[in-house]
Structures are given as C-alpha cells and as structure tokens.
C-alpha cells in the first residue's frame, strides 16, 4: 500500500453507544485493551470487522467503532468464516463467551479451528451464563451451584485450551481481564498470527460468578498458582521464582530449584513445537495438584489458511481454464438445434 495510514488512538475505536455491561464487569477491561491494541496494528479502521454471537461478551461489536456484526447464539465462527472466505483481506475478530463458543456453538468453534480460518477469537470465560442470569456453563466446575443446578452440577467442564488444541488450533493462548499488560501483549501476538488465533480470556462476572478466578489472579496467590509462558524461557514460577517444570516420562513434574535441580533441567518453552502433545500437556496442568495454571501462548505454529487455499483454488482455475464463459456453460453438454 502506498497511502499512509491515519494515526489512530483508542478514541477512534470507541462508539457513541452507551456501554451496557454491569458496573465492575471484566468485559470493560477487555474492551479497553482491544481498543488500545487495534490502533497499533497498522490496519485501516474500515478493514476491521468484529463478529459476535449471543451473550454478554457478544455485545462487544456495538462498542467498537469498526464494522460489526452481532449475530445469533453460537454462530459467530460460521458467519465469520463466510465473511473471510468472501473477503480474505479483512481483519475479522470474534468476541464470544464460554456458553456461546463451547456449548451452542461448539461445532462451529472446532471446525473453524480445524480449517485454520484466519480469524482472531477472544473467548471471554467467566464460567457462567450471565445474560440469562446465572446458569452453569460448560466451563463451570463440577458441583457448581447455579440457578439451574441448585444441588450442584454433575457434569465435567471443558478444559478450554485442551479443546482448542484437540481441534488442532494453530494459535492457542490465555490471558486475564485484569492483567492489562499481559492481555494487550497477547492480543498483539494473536493479531500477528496468520491462522485461527484462539485466546481464552479469564473474565470475572461480578454479578453471577464473582471471584471465579480469584484463586489464580489475586495478588497474594498468583505467583504460585500461575505460570507465565515465554517462548524460549524455562518454565519457572512461584513467588521466589524457585519452582520449575520438567519432564518425567510422558508427564510433567513440578520441581523446586536447588538441591541438584538446575534451570537447565527444566523445560524451555517452545510455542512452535511441532508436536501438539507438548502444548496439550501444558493445558492439562491446572487440573493437577500442585501445578500452576498456564498463561500466555501455548502454541503458535504456521499452517495453510482455509480462506487462502479456497481462494487460491478459484484463482488457479480461472488462470487454467480462463474466466468462465456463461454462454458456453449454458449450452454445455449435448445440445440439438430446432429449426
């Protein structure tokens, strides 16, 4: 492009619409982070499209001064796939939630990831249905007492990252609504990824599931309960940076540095590891006693993008066969003349 881009600020991506999330909702922080990152991406504003489904998170497009499409429950990935196939040059972001993406829209989510459509997916995970006022969600912990489960839920939750990795997502990351710096850095990495970029954002619903992530994100516990993944850096965590993770057989093991355990024994994080089993192991840690919950980019690998392949096929056929001739097509096959 020869034309110079306007210099954007956060303000350029804000709309005049009154934001209608509950005061104190984690969604505000996510909106603010996105509005700060978009101006940095070097993309003309008119090329951005924010697509959403249904749920609190899915009101997102109304507050972004870009093209926006608030679709129906669960279907944002399918709408966005159609849009991206038709217009691969657009920068299409999806705002979705745990119910929207993993329950009613689960099928579209896995197929979008399988195809590696060049879409950015922000999954706001608050482990609850907020907009319908407090039912348990597919990420709620077993035993969750909610409006529809007064005696506790009995089904197992999805591990969001494992699910995405199982669908062979090429970019899988996790961040937290209140960790603004980390969130913005993660969004920048997602923006730079060329295939489906899947970002789970741990988000607090202060009305129906307040404190769902407190055990991870509160100041006094986060150092011990979270591990920040940095590409090329060893897996170290803990208040005193004295704990690390190493391989033990085909499992991971938490070790304390010292007493014969050196940094060189630890796993060096490789988000581009060709074997998805590595990222999958990381995604399973949070369920294991004594293990930290991973934040950051678990996996970022290159793979052909669906919309690119599909459009390339069309272009190749046009080049090979010449642009379609309608008259020839209509009279194709066996014909006869009536005089």
């Amino acid at each position: 492009m020869t034309t110079t881009l306007p210099v954007y600020t956060k303000k350029d991506f804000q709309t005049d619409q009154e934001v209608r999330w509950c005061p104190g909702c984690g969604d505000y922080a996510i909106l603010s982070a996105v509005q700060q990152v978009f101006p940095e991406l070097g993309v003309p504003r008119e090329k951005f499209v924010v697509v959403s489904g249904i749920g609190c998170s899915s009101r997102f497009p109304y507050y972004m001064n870009t093209y926006g499409f608030h679709t129906i429950h669960g279907r944002a990935p399918a709408v966005a796939t159609g849009l991206k196939l038709a217009r691969p040059e657009l920068e299409v972001w999806i705002a979705t939630g745990d119910g929207d993406a993993l329950s009613i829209g689960g099928n579209h989510t896995i197929h979008m990831l399988r195809r590696n459509v060049g879409l950015k997916v922000l999954l706001f995970n608050n482990r609850i249905y907020g907009l319908t006022k407090g039912q348990y969600s597919p990420t709620s912990e077993t035993g969750k007492k909610a409006k529809s489960t007064p005696y506790g839920s009995v089904d197992r939750p999805f591990n969001v990252l494992s699910l995405a990795l199982g669908a062979e997502a090429t970019f899988v990351a996790r961040s937290v609504d209140v960790f603004q710096g980390h969130l913005k850095a993660t969004l920048r990495k997602a923006a730079a990824h060329r295939g489906s970029a899947f970002v789970e954002i741990l988000q607090n619903c202060n009305i129906f599931n307040d404190g769902a992530w407190d055990s991870l994100v509160e100041k006094d516990v986060k150092e011990d309960h979270l591990i920040q993944l940095e590409h090329g850096q060893p897996l170290i965590f803990g208040k005193n940076k004295d704990k690390g993770i190493r391989m033990k057989g085909i499992d991971l093991e938490v070790v304390t540095l010292g007493n014969g355990v050196a940094e060189s024994d630890l796993i060096v994080h490789d988000e581009r590891h060709p074997n998805p089993a590595y990222a999958f192991l990381l995604s399973r840690m949070e369920a294991l006693p004594g293990f930290p919950t991973p934040l950051g980019v678990l996996r970022a690998v290159d793979a052909p993008r669906y919309e690119e392949g599909a459009n390339q096929q069309v272009q190749e056929l046009i080049a090979r066969k010449g642009p379609g001739d309608l008259a020839k097509l209509l009279s194709g096959g066996d014909t006869w003349e009536v005089k």
Binding site: A78, G82, H108, K321, P323
Partner: peptide
C-alpha cells in the same frame, strides 16, 4: 470455480446458512 464461484461445504446446516 472458474466463474469465481466460492463453494463452502459447511459443518452443518446452520453453518451453511450463517456462512
């Protein structure tokens, strides 16, 4: 396809419509 036709075999009927 040489007519510029993009066909998408969707994962289900809903995705067919929404795409």
């Amino acid at each position: 396809k040489s007519f510029g036709v993009m066909t998408f075999q969707a994962e289900d009927e809903i995705a067919a419509m929404t795409s």
